[in-house]
Nucleic acid binder design. Structure first.
Lengths: 196, 196, 196, 196
DNA sequence: TATGAATGAGAGTTCATTCAT
DNA sequence: TATGAATGAACTCTCATTCAT
């Protein structure tokens, strides 16, 4: 049997490693999580990781790139059926809040954690950030798209950060309508500004 | 009597260490900066840091607490003369943008970097976050103060993050008016559910 | 019945492994060549080597013993028809030079590389070293045979080493006549103490 | 006290490390000697080595470069007073034999061991090899200097190798006169050859 | 006070080898 | 038979910290 790279069992193991790593990275940060920590979490030897990933750096990068792309896809999908910038942004915000609630580890790792500059990762225009930017660029053509995206995203992420620090108790999904309004309002404020 | 930890020379040295550490922490992150890096930056021996700080953790905590308190003070001072929530928030945003432009290292270290959960730091109610929260709690008594603070802060910090990643080129101070409007609009959206 | 270790296909595989290993060992040294390197070179799985060899050490030993014996046989064969010590040594030198040119990897592995003391290998009196020693012992009965063999061999091997390091450009075969004279002269100097 | 790099005690320690490393490298080879082995030999922690050398590679390189240069110097010094190529070569051979007997570890490390290609080391024309080459180039201007050096050096080094393997029992110094004759004879054989 | 030296713990990674399939 | 997965041991090297001077 000359199976290329990755038996079924192998792929499952790889997925298990990624899941465990993601959880630990979200909890403690990438730098504070050792490869041994990840292995111990899975009950395997530390050297076994290296059958599935050539290095910790690649593991982090792959994890990040995969998740980031997936998030971008989900946001675009959420906005897909909606008409009007406000409704589309609203759908995206709702989706983000759902993701934050349903898989907190992944959300934290992807959007709140610091990965040390991520010099390796290049996601192109698949990212959730770009999904928001594209939405707002279309809806508010007179606004600085980058800035509008920044403020809209900031609204949601900072709420999530407050939640992570325990300053906010309610689940994100409950906050979604309010955050959607706030994000839209903030984005709108980026229009019709005569540069002083 | 040689320069001691309590003397003028001692204090200067301590300040120099803090400044160098802050710069390196902002550039590479706390975890990626070793005590030796800091010492080398200053041209002193690696053990000399321990004349002024009992541990790296304390250095980080002190740096953070000092800066955080100072930022809180500055924000409150900026808002002091103003009347009305909107004007007060606006002044705070302007001040934050000025700080971001004038000492990027400190700003990045205090507001953008992650310090690994910061479990040691306890700033009480002196923090810039609480300054914003207090301002909005007074101005928008019907809003969830914590949430309003989160969205207003998120607006500004995410813009700064985009700038740090090179997505936004203009200095923060130029963006300040827009960000002030956006922050206020976002905070207002946290009141009731009637779209303004 | 699939190809087994004793079948024709099995023997071919084993030979392929030995050839690849020899090349890599010569290029990088034994210690710097991993079993995985060898497997990858052949496009087979890392565990497959162990179908043919019980350990890396045995692979090295077998490779060395085989080659060494073969070299001894070839040297003896080269000298076989010749009369007189000088002619016999000359033929051996020529043969060694031919071997160096024709299969540099094998030559380097067998005669220039160090294998870490080679404690496992025991070639008895089949070795090329002993072939030279026997030749000189017969031709120069008054000389210390071991020493005479050493100097004669050193003449040729050091030339090959210089070639390996790029200090000598011409192929060994071109140097063979000169090296034969030099080796003979050196061996003769091991007789008595009367300068020839 | 702002001593540049290296207290007196520090320099002694560095020398001790180099001596221990040299001995182990000679005994087992560079690859088979771990940094921990060296540290254990000295009764210090493994991390302590890194206060004196930035890496194992640098330790090896420094050791090699230092010793090689020293050997070159000694060979040139040994030949200095002598007149005539033969006498000069003879003095060099005697000196090499003395070095082999007096500090076998260093001799083995420098001249017999394999350091893995030594890509880092660049000794220029200070090396013992070049000392021999220069001597022979002057004495035998019609010979290919590189080849003459190779054969002369091979004579001595292969004798030393035989000794290292236990094939020769007498100390090198006893063999020196014979080896000097043999080396000179071999070098002379590189003259007056009409390239066939 | 300031420093070079020292160090135990631990990092990421590689290795030869075993094992289940 | 051939293989991907697994692994314990070992590797080089870094870190925050302590200590003698």
């Amino acid at each position: 049997m000359k199976a290329g790279a990755g038996t079924k069992a192998g792929k499952e193991k790889k997925a298990a490693i990624m899941a465990a790593a993601e959880r630990l990275f979200a909890e403690r940060g990438v730098a504070a999580t050792s490869t041994r920590d990840i292995a111990r979490e899975l009950g395997i030897g530390d050297a076994s990781l290296y059958r599935h990933f050539p290095s910790k750096e690649v593991l982090v990068a792959e994890l990040f790139a995969d998740g980031y792309r997936e998030y971008g896809r989900l946001l675009r999908a959420a906005a897909d059926g909606k008409r009007g910038g406000r409704a589309r942004l609203s759908a995206m915000v709702r989706e983000v809040c759902r993701l934050a609630d349903e898989d907190a580890a992944r959300f934290t790792f992807l959007l709140l954690a610091q990965h040390g500059g991520l010099p390796t990762v290049e996601v192109g225009t698949d990212s959730p950030v770009d999904a928001v930017r594209a939405c707002l660029a279309e809806a508010l053509p007179e606004a600085d798209a980058e800035l509008a995206a920044a403020v809209a995203i900031g609204v949601v992420l900072q709420a999530a950060t407050f939640r992570a620090y325990g300053r906010i108790a309610r689940p994100m999904s409950e906050l979604a309508p309010t955050l959607a309004d706030a994000a839209w309002a903030a984005a709108c404020a980026c229009v019709a500004r005569t540069p002083e």
